[in-house]
């Protein structure tokens, strides 16, 4: 009897001793963005979400693997609805796996959307375009959720910017997300230039874009890439910069 009391007391005291240590360790892990983003959900909702993950913990990886395989088959069979649902689960299981978010968005915005636009069973173009746009939105949605869970990496910001640029043709948003990507330490070399190229296409912000292109130009040879020069030239034309102060001289027109 005494032994039981003593044993339980030791467990409780150990619980109290480790409490501050574990709270600190958890904070440190969160600072490194482990365990996914801390979602601002109600307690009950989080319990069910975490409970799901916990019940699978250990098994989680195995389940995710099987689902990856399932997603791959859905893609080959062109079953877009099922593909989306599968990726929803995969991403919930592994919120810190950026490849999953990226793949999901890519399937939606690039594969499913094209398939929707070219749907032979829907004769009306307007409806096909509407369906295409819905898939763009699904892709955007995956990336936004992915970013919430992985705010420390550039990859998903860059992917989202590219969707805004190529699919939605929303240059302002594209510029903003390239900008965000460029702030992350693992950003690719080119994204900061992309942010400015996109800004140059936003009506009303040509002046700002021009100043920034100029600043890049003056950084040196390594920034003076053909796209940058072309973009610079276009803006100089648009803003009517006096010929003498122009940085870009178009190559001589060949007859």
């Amino acid at each position: 009897m005494k032994a039981r009391v003593l044993g339980i007391a030791i467990i409780l005291v150990f619980g109290a001793v480790r409490l501050p240590f574990e709270v600190r360790l958890e904070k440190e892990q969160r600072a490194l963005h482990y365990h996914g983003a801390k979602l601002d959900l109600g307690m009950r909702q989080r319990l069910s979400q975490m409970g799901f993950v916990a019940a699978l913990s250990g098994f989680r990886a195995v389940v995710a693997t099987v689902l990856h395989i399932e997603a791959y088959t859905s893609w080959q069979r062109v079953e877009w609805g099922r593909l989306k649902l599968t990726y929803d689960t995969i991403c919930a299981l592994e919120p810190r796996n950026m490849q999953s978010w990226d793949m999901a968005a890519w399937h939606m915005a690039y594969n499913a959307s094209v398939a929707a636009r070219e749907n032979k069973e829907q004769p009306r173009l307007a409806l096909r375009l509407k369906a295409e746009r819905e898939y763009f939105k699904l892709g955007e949605d995956f990336l936004l959720r992915g970013i919430e869970n992985n705010p420390d990496h550039a990859l998903l910001f860059e992917r989202l910017a590219t969707i805004y640029r190529d699919k939605f043709k929303d240059h302002e948003k594209a510029s903003r997300y390239y900008e965000e990507a460029a702030r992350r330490p693992d950003a690719m070399q080119y994204v900061h230039r992309f942010a400015v190229y996109e800004l140059a296409k936003v009506p009303g912000r040509e002046r700002e874009a021009y100043e920034r292109l100029k600043a890049l130009y003056e950084k040196g040879e390594e920034e003076r890439l053909p796209t940058l020069l072309r973009s610079l030239g276009e803006l100089e034309e648009k803003l009517d910069v006096p010929k003498a102060r122009r940085l870009y001289s178009p190559p001589p027109q060949k007859p």
Binding site: I11, G15, L25, Q29, L32, H35, A61, R96, N97
Partner: peptide, 20 residues
């Protein structure tokens, strides 16, 4: 909180799998 262990703290394995 006091009686049960916190196994979540050992789950940094997930990060490593993803390559972080």
């Amino acid at each position: 909180s006091l009686v049960f262990p916190d196994f979540q703290l050992f789950n940094i394995v997930d990060e490593i799998v993803v390559g972080n």
